[in-house]
Design a protein around this nucleic acid. Sequence first.
DNA 1: TCCAACTTTCAGAATTTTGTGAATGTTATG
DNA 2: CATAACATTCACAAAATTCTGAAAGTTGGA
Lengths: 195, 195
Amino acid sequence: MSTDQAPGPDPAQLLAYIERFASTLSDSGIPRMPARVFAALLTADDGRLTSQQLAGMLDISPAAVSGAIRYLSQVGLVTREREPGSRRDRYRVLDEVWQEAILQRDAILVRWETSLAEGVAVVGAESPAGRRLAESVVMFQFLRGELPGLLKRWYEQRAELRAAATRDDAVGRALAAHPEPHPEAEAEAHPEAEH
Amino acid sequence: MSTDQAPGPDPAQLLAYIERFASTLSDSGIPRMPARVFAALLTADDGRLTSQQLAGMLDISPAAVSGAIRYLSQVGLVTREREPGSRRDRYRVLDEVWQEAILQRDAILVRWETSLAEGVAVVGAESPAGRRLAESVVMFQFLRGELPGLLKRWYEQRAELRAAATRDDAVGRALAAHPEPHPEAEAEAHPEAEH
DNA sequence: TCCAACTTTCAGAATTTTGTGAATGTTATG
DNA sequence: CATAACATTCACAAAATTCTGAAAGTTGGA
C-alpha cells in the first residue's frame, strides 16, 4: 500500500537536498541559480530535465532557467539537447563531462598562472616579490602537468568500478553502458499536450 | 637620474596589476576586497603589510581591511603577526601556506564529497541517480587520496628549485632560507611616530 | 590608572547582483 | 506562410553584498 512502483524519493526531501547541495556549490563560487539547476539535474534519474520541469520544481521563471543554463553550458557543466522534431530543450549533465570539469578546472589554473606570471613582470623578476611569484607560477605549471596523469588514473579506476557494477547486477549494466544512455525511451508522466 | 636605488616597481602599475589579479581571484569565488588585499600582500616584497599600508595603497577604510583579513585568515591564506611591544598588526602571506591551500582545498573537497554522499541517501542508492551520485562520491575520494602524493611531489620539485636558486645567486639564498625570513630587520620608509 | 595607538564591530548608505514579467526571437507543424 | 510552443533578451524591481564612518574594544606605555 506504500510503494506504488516507488516513483522516486520524497519530493520535498529531494528539493531540500537540492537546496543544500546548491549552497555547497555556491560557496565554491558558482552563482546561486546555476547551482540550483545543476543540483536538480544531478539528482534527476537520467540527468536530464526540460526547462519546464526545472522551472516547476525550483519554482523559478523560464528566464531564470535560461540564464542558469547559459552559465552552466558556458562552464561546460551542462549540455543542451533537443529531440529532433520538438521545440522543447532538454538539459543534461554528462557525468563524464562534469567530473572532468572538476578535475581539470584548466581554465582557472591557466588564468591564475598567467596572472601570476604577469605579476612577475610588473614587480621585477629579481625582486624578492618577483621570486616569490615566480615560484607560484612554477607551482601552477607543475599542477597542470600533473592533471593528465590524474585524469588517466581516475578513468582507470572508474572503468574498474563500472566493470564491477556490470558484473554484480543488472541495473549496473545500464550505468556501465553510459556513453549514450537511453537516447529515446520517453516514459515520463506529463501530458505533453503538443497541440 | 632615474634609478634611485630602485625602490620597487611603478606604484601605479603595481596597483593596476593588483586589481587585475584580484579580478582573477574574484572569479574563483574569493570576495572582492579579500582578493585585493591578498593580491597586495602577494606582491609585497616580504609578503607583509600593515593594516595602514593596505588601507593606504588600496584606498579603503580600516574596517574594510579588518573584514578582508578576517576572511583571509579564516580561509588560511593569511597570517596575523604582531611584533611584541607594538599594537600594530602586520598581515602576511606565507608561500608555503597559500600554495598548500591551493593544492589541497581539502575543506571544499570534503564538503562536496559529503554533500554528494548525502544525495545518494536521499535519492536512494539503487536508483540511477543514486548510482551516478555514488560514482562522483568515489571520484572525490579518489581525488583526496591523490592529494598527499601530489603535495609531496610538489615539495620535492620546489626543494630542487630553491636549491638551484641558492646555487645560482646570492639573493636566491635568502629565498631558500625561507622558513622564517628576516624576523626583524625593519627598514621601512615611514616615520613610525610612536608617540 | 589614564592615554594614545590600533583594531574591530555595527548600523546604515550605496552599489551590485539576481530574478521577474513582458516583449521578442526561433522553429516545427498544419 | 500562419500559428503555436518554446526559448531568450531586456528593462526594471527586489534583494543581497559590500564598504564606510562612528563608536567601542584592546593593548602597550607613562
